[in-house]
Design a protein around this nucleic acid. Structure first.
Lengths: 262, 262
DNA sequence: CGGCCAATTGATTAAACTCAATCTGCGTGG
DNA sequence: CCACGCAGATTGAGTTTAATCAATTGGCCG
């Protein structure tokens, strides 16, 4: 696999993980360098490559450095359901120490740069850097909220609403890690991937995306999607911003996450 | 609320939580008494009562002592989607320390006995009893797997398959805590609750349940459901037993969960 | 017995799927 | 530089699944 040219995400000084954690609580320089060190061992995958297999043993946790990934399962009939999308800064397999077998597969939705983290190091984190450990727990809670939203989407929203809701989610998650510019998102997913995320057929997904375009909610150009009216998109899709915890993020959490000095 | 006569679960010596953890790893007597002490502060709710509100602040974690509960969300149109079902021994709100606001509501699906646990005590657990702390982490991983299954069910299974899959899940989860006798389950959910769990209308849910009966897969009598052919049910519903971790449970997990002596 | 909740049934409509082409942009080999 | 091939997007037509609306039935309790 060629490691060169992974210009999928705006390469800034800090890794996506640091940007994400930094948005949630104050992180010291020492913690930053610890986090960067954690991501030393990297792996680059091509779009379509699997890196976790449902039923297989889990050997490591993965931090997304750049690109998009998907957790998914296959039905006996061979239909794919994408459970959730992992974006830069997300961590997959935090439960590596507590569960022998993976309960889902994972694949790259774009060229993907992963940091591979030894299970033992995950256990260390809470010992050495409680704040970061709390951050990871917060990630877990957030993942749970995202998966809950996904469930609501599939169970009780129409195709039209599902797509609006999904795009709103992606919009806010990308915003949070600084990957939205001028309301425009780079979305590497194909319509087939979106269909498998939203439990729809490709044809119907296509028709409903076109409707969002006709209705002036979004605009597409190649792999880019411009969100013309995020408020209307949230309204159409019934999107609840508070589930992603946007509001709380400016102020650090109290309790175990708070920090006395600095 | 009357506390008497909560004969929803077979009252044994050990609480459901202890039975569940005991099925996963060896638990010492000291740990058992700690776990029982944790559940000292109880609360009894009537069917239909809410005890967590989407968007509200989370004040405590809850351990289900007996009865069934549901996590759910409401859409703007007022439609309900049940995200997952909590059975005796399950813990809700473990993320209480890491997330300010609840991202779902919770309600009693039957008469429900809850233990109310202070957030601070949740933090203590891993300190005082690492094995139990690991158990809770395992619970989290399992919840995640269950919610993943729910997502697959809603996204890629037909109504018929969804119901079969759901019943299979309930069957194994109840078996695990010793609440299945003679392949018969006490299911307090109404068809309306099942519909809201599986993203279906009540009418269609009813028709497909009747089909499972006609096909000889299940039998119902009042609130009891007898699973006539669990293998066929799993087959029809595409149910993957390994996601609940049944297989690993007889042997204690290695790593942080393992125990040297006793 | 009346009333209510829940389950069941019938008839019709609507949403989404499937099958089958066609179109389009893009990269590649000649 | 262009024809070809391919992946992905789009369109059309017909079918299926599940939703909706509207009763009706059955059991249980006061």
């Amino acid at each position: 696999m060629d490691i060169a040219s992974s210009n999928l995400s705006p390469e800034q000084d800090a890794s996506a993980l640091v940007r994400k954690l930094g948005g949630m609580a104050l992180v010291s320089e020492e913690e930053v360098s610890y986090l960067e060190g954690l991501q030393a061992n990297t792996l680059v995958l091509k779009r379509g490559a699997d890196f976790m297999r449902d039923g297989g043993s889990i050997s490591a946790a993965f931090i997304i450095r750049s690109g998009w990934a998907a957790r998914y399962v296959l039905t006996a009939e061979g239909r794919r359901q994408i459970l959730s999308i992992a974006l830069p800064g997300d961590v997959m397999g935090l439960h590596v120490n507590f569960s022998r077998k993976a309960t889902y597969s994972a694949m790259a939705l774009s060229e993907l740069e992963l940091a591979v983290v030894e299970p033992m190091r995950i256990l260390e984190i809470s010992q050495k850097h409680p704040l970061i450990g709390s951050g990871l727990s917060w990630f877990t809670a957030r993942e749970f909220a995202i998966l809950g939203d996904q469930t609501m989407r599939l169970g009780r929203l129409s195709a039209h609403q599902r797509i609006a809701h999904f795009l709103a989610e992606i919009y806010f998650r990308l915003s949070f890690i600084g990957e939205v510019e001028d309301d425009t998102l780079y979305v590497p997913m194909r319509q087939a991937d979106i269909a498998d995320t939203l439990g729809l057929s490709i044809v119907h997904t296509n028709r409903e995306i076109m409707r969002l375009r006709r209705d002036g909610l979004i605009e597409t150009a190649g792999r880019e999607i411009r969100i013309i009216d995020i408020n209307r998109l949230c309204e159409v899709g019934n999107f609840d911003r508070s589930h992603l915890g946007e509001i709380e993020l400016s102020e650090p959490l109290t309790g175990p996450i708070s920090r006395e000095n600095r």
